[in-house]
Nucleic acid binder design. Structure first.
Lengths: 162, 162
DNA sequence: GTGATGTACCTCACCGCTAAGGTATTGCTA
DNA sequence: TAGCAATACCTTAGCGGTGAGGTACATCAC
């Protein structure tokens, strides 16, 4: 009870803070999420919209629109999927990769700063509790979002970058 | 790093689950937040839009619109604030109070279920860590949202119900 | 092969929130 | 007490997300 309220509150405060970093690079959370997920994916850093959808925990419509915006800015590229005529593959353009490579270090620094109140031990405990809760709610395989992890060879990874 | 991602992810999963409870009573998270905050406030359960704004961590425009919707459904009442000609006071109607009193127990049951994977001790640790993090980010007084707590006589309370 | 079902993605109407700006009132200060 | 900044709330344009629905392709059973 006090848990859920604080969880929600903390997430808002944190995401508001992260947003400031993104904004400094002319990005928003949605765009960052897509770019960072692509960057984190295994080479050749190419994912399908469905994978991005699961990773970001948003609907397919949201991903279509995110990709429209990013493609319009020349940050990602949609190419037909040769293995599946229904699908496309999304990849970073050079410009997109350069941008996310500039933003990521700053993003990580912000995250570290936000968590600096926690000692290493408490942080480990915290992450373990988060992991347990997620596992109990999503199941060990992570029905909603772990696809990005599986597909990129990560099983414990930092899905849901934002 | 793994922390922030999981935090965001967990919050989404949790709030999606809570939403189902609300929907069963023809409510959404925004409306529940307002009704529950009013209900939790000290008698006579009357708050200003500014207090609701801080409690919900949303903008004043969002509160105006939430109140429009709730008032249109006859769940809350806006009355002029006699002590301050600029302001209004928001209170629950009988119908609003009855509704939130029906929803709250179910909401609490959902919260308990979501946290059932955690033992009591781990839950206490978790809440303490959340509290520490919030304090470090908002300051001890809670610049953004603690007003609702102060005004309702709570200092450690369950602000940010959703 | 043919038809039925499922999947991948897109489109669009609608919705709630933000951010900027407006009005009315309060309260400080000269 | 007159002027001015601050405050409380509302209004609205614009934005991103959802959810429903559509199209194209894949897959499976027969």
């Amino acid at each position: 009870m006090a848990v859920i309220g604080r969880l929600s509150r903390l997430q808002r405060v944190v995401s508001a803070e992260l947003k400031r970093t993104f904004a400094a690079h002319d990005l928003d959370s949605a765009s960052f999420d897509v770019l960072a997920t692509l960057r984190r994916s295994a080479p050749p850093h190419r994912l399908t919209p469905t994978e991005l959808m699961k990773s970001g925990m948003v609907t397919s419509g949201a991903i279509s629109q995110r990709l429209d915006r990013l493609e319009g800015r020349g940050l990602v590229l949609r190419t037909p999927n040769e293995e599946d005529g229904r699908g496309v593959r999304v990849s970073l353009t050079d410009e997109g990769r350069e941008l996310i490579d500039r933003v990521l270090p700053e993003h990580l620094a912000t995250e570290r700063r936000l968590l600096s109140a926690l000692t290493g031990e408490r942080r480990d405990q915290f992450v373990e509790t988060l992991r347990e809760l997620l596992e109990s709610l999503e199941g060990p395989a992570g029905p909603a979002g772990a696809a990005c992890c599986r597909n990129s060879g990560r099983t414990s990874g930092a899905c849901c970058a934002v």
